[in-house]
Design a protein around this nucleic acid. Sequence first.
DNA 1: CTGTTAGCGCATTCAG
DNA 2: CTGAATGCGCTAACAG
Lengths: 330, 330
Amino acid sequence: MTIYDIAREAGVAASTVSRVINNKPGIKLETRQRVQELLKKYNYIPDAAARGLVMQSSRLVGILIVDIRVAHHVDSAFVIEQELTRRGYCCIIMSTGPEDEKKAEYIRILEQRRVEGVILMGSMFGTASVEESIKKHLPKVPIVMVNGYLDLPNVSGVIVDEDAGVARCVDLLCAKGKPKIAFVLDSVSPSNIHKQRGYCEGMRRNGAGEENLWLYDMEESTVRGGYEATLRILDEHPDVQGIIYSIDLVAVGGVRAAYDRGIDVPGQLGLIGIDNSIYGEICMPKLTTLDNRLQALSESAASILREGLEGKVQNKKMMMFSEIIEREST
Amino acid sequence: MTIYDIAREAGVAASTVSRVINNKPGIKLETRQRVQELLKKYNYIPDAAARGLVMQSSRLVGILIVDIRVAHHVDSAFVIEQELTRRGYCCIIMSTGPEDEKKAEYIRILEQRRVEGVILMGSMFGTASVEESIKKHLPKVPIVMVNGYLDLPNVSGVIVDEDAGVARCVDLLCAKGKPKIAFVLDSVSPSNIHKQRGYCEGMRRNGAGEENLWLYDMEESTVRGGYEATLRILDEHPDVQGIIYSIDLVAVGGVRAAYDRGIDVPGQLGLIGIDNSIYGEICMPKLTTLDNRLQALSESAASILREGLEGKVQNKKMMMFSEIIEREST
DNA sequence: CTGTTAGCGCATTCAG
DNA sequence: CTGAATGCGCTAACAG
């Protein structure tokens, strides 16, 4: 069913049908109604691709996420998707995986679809190869990075002061008389590097030397990974008094490890996660966590992208401030 | 940059450029190379919409989810998205929300985009108004419902025997000498109705009368909701020996409630969730859960949709069998 | 081997 | 107020 089919049956020209569909003025009420009846009769819906071709606008936006299953990323995506759908855009949401070439390839796919805007979710997109791919494939469309930044004229970024936040977590533990603190990294990403830097900075300003910086990483970013990393810490540093984890999910494994070893949390050991995710509320004791404001971050991202779609200038940089949510594990 | 721009600079016709792009045979090696160089020079990528228009194929599929943030749904979406992206399709993933009219509207949006296939995630899409909207807007494209079914010629469904599974959960608790069992419903959906039916069936075959069927529901499908429902059960039936929850997330609230009341799990009270989700592994004690095979379900759905996209007959119905994962809470 | 022509479904001139 | 003609970017049938 095309406008020509409708036009023929209505005994008018296609352009008239088009005018009716788009509520353009200057149509006799009678013909307008006749056409509208036929549109309804055949459940006619215009083809977005054909319309996009002539209008030079796809009304498509891309949302790239390393892994859509990661709770805090999909939470952000939800906020943005809702906002954009409300404004008549369709969201192409894709899981790119961690490999750099893949991310670049997905940017190419988005160019092929002629998206009008892009969201890059998470700091993992802040790599040289992504930057290259953007310059090559999407040098003009507005792009907003959630918790990341690339210095390109069409790219904006909303970030959070995770480093300062983690440093304050160190302060918190020290204030509770627990200055022997380890830090667990679930994976290597720009955001996690910042967190680690914050840990080091916080430790130093609380009088720790290099030998007191206990850094741990892990094979896989899972509960089990956090469990095993925590056991390693307990083995190697039986006098540890606090552990900060780069994400809640992994911290939850730490809570379990402490329990299995018969260590009292928070009495003997203070535990802190990051993300303020549901996981922290589920585990027992409930997890103290650094809220990195992902909700607010995504709202800002959506709003910046909206402005970009409307043609406003881009290349904005916005910072939010993290906040410690103290619960039962400290 | 269009094929005409490339053609002009290469001194050939647009159709020649098109042939080169699509690796069609019958082009002199020399011209092919000359064109390819220009394509690379300008980072030319063909416009998917224009190509789709003439090929009569959008290579777009829609994935509708009530709420993309729900862990077990997004896990399924991930599996399907990966499979389809690998085959060159782009996935439009949308959160519809629970309202029926919204769901119908999103189906209309998918028609507008001329999607070639649709995934409907979760039993919540099994409503009359969705059926109506499919008949009206997408009567021809292959549609696969994950954990649901509609009797339409172009709709397939993969479902799981949740009722039988829940009945077996009742058996399990009874076998452990805990025949006084309550059932907690997190929300009203066809899938949850099945679960409840399974509970009733299981109770009856273990000798329970109508007065022994303790059914509870809740305001909101959250940890807190499960917490409060469980407290209500403990107040109204202090002799309760087991509780089955319609989803893990809510069961986790129950674990917490039992803990706060000083009730030993599983000693005094056996707790069972449904979904085999990450939540069950996080909480303490780890949750016994009914694995409703969502992973396998989504793989089947992806494979059925793939066949549909290749033009194979649809209207399949497939059933998977749930399985109890016994952990620490029973 | 390559160019010309037509048409996918639509919106937008410009005439009338 | 309406119709005919044109073009968006691309592929395909047909000629040469």
